[in-house]
Design a protein around this nucleic acid. Structure first.
Lengths: 123, 123
DNA sequence: ATTATTGTATTAAGTGTCTAATACAATAAT
DNA sequence: ATTATTGTATTAGACACTTAATACAATAAT
């Protein structure tokens, strides 16, 4: 489970992974997260690195920690929903930026996207 | 012109920028690049950082340097073409990965993409 | 021949990330 | 009451990236 790319800080990559799990409801509102130590084992990184990712998520109010009980996903549905929308738009804008710089037209882009989705459904 | 994001090494970001300029023919085959020192001024970074980006590009055979003359874009059209295709596919796959993790459907994705293109054309 | 310009190399210092080891604080579980 | 488990904090060291300052090598321009 060495899933990290070397060019981006690991704590940011962990943040992003957990954010995705929250907005896609793999982690539900109020659900308890694994402990810092367990996540560190799971991700094969130092507990401090997980701690850093989690405190950033706490800064965004996406998780709350009760000392000695554990950490829980926020129950603020509006916050989660608006974060999801924001993440979607950011991915879309970045993609269209990139693809335009590569001189790919709108029609070609759509074809590529459809093709990629098609390939995923077959496997 | 402080266009760099802090979480990715600058030399990689410069590499990516120049690669995009080559595959999109803003830099033509055999065209001379600015000097290391000029690029450093232009990007507002240390010459060593530019040097690192350029020697990576040289490792990929995308540029060649003639000592004391300067650096030139490769004239290998096949290489450039296949790099472009590879970059496109990588952006597409990454986008579809991300968007699926955000629980966005194929149809919704297409709508978002079309919308983003539409907005660009009006401004 | 001399000078200027090119790419290249080296050394030192500063910063951020990550790990390791350890400890503390609060409280649920026993 | 005691113990175990939770989040949190601290200190030290290793490593990669970046900057700064400087120098060298090769050759085009003069």
């Amino acid at each position: 489970m060495d899933q990290f790319q070397s060019t981006q800080p690991i704590y940011l990559q962990i943040m992003e992974m957990i954010k995705k799990e929250i907005v896609s409801e793999k982690l539900l509102p109020q659900q308890q997260l694994p402990t810092v130590r367990d996540l560190a084992l799971q991700y094969q990184v130092n507990p401090n690195t997980v701690q850093r990712a989690l405190s950033e998520l706490e800064r965004l109010s996406l998780v709350k920690s009760d000392r000695t009980i554990g950490r829980f996903v926020s129950d603020d549905l509006d916050l989660i929903q608006s974060l999801r929308q924001q993440m979607i738009m950011e991915k879309v804008e970045t993609f269209v930026d990139d693809i335009e710089q590569l001189k790919v037209t709108q029609e070609e882009s759509i074809n590529y996207i459809n093709q990629a989705f098609r390939e995923r459904k077959t496997k």
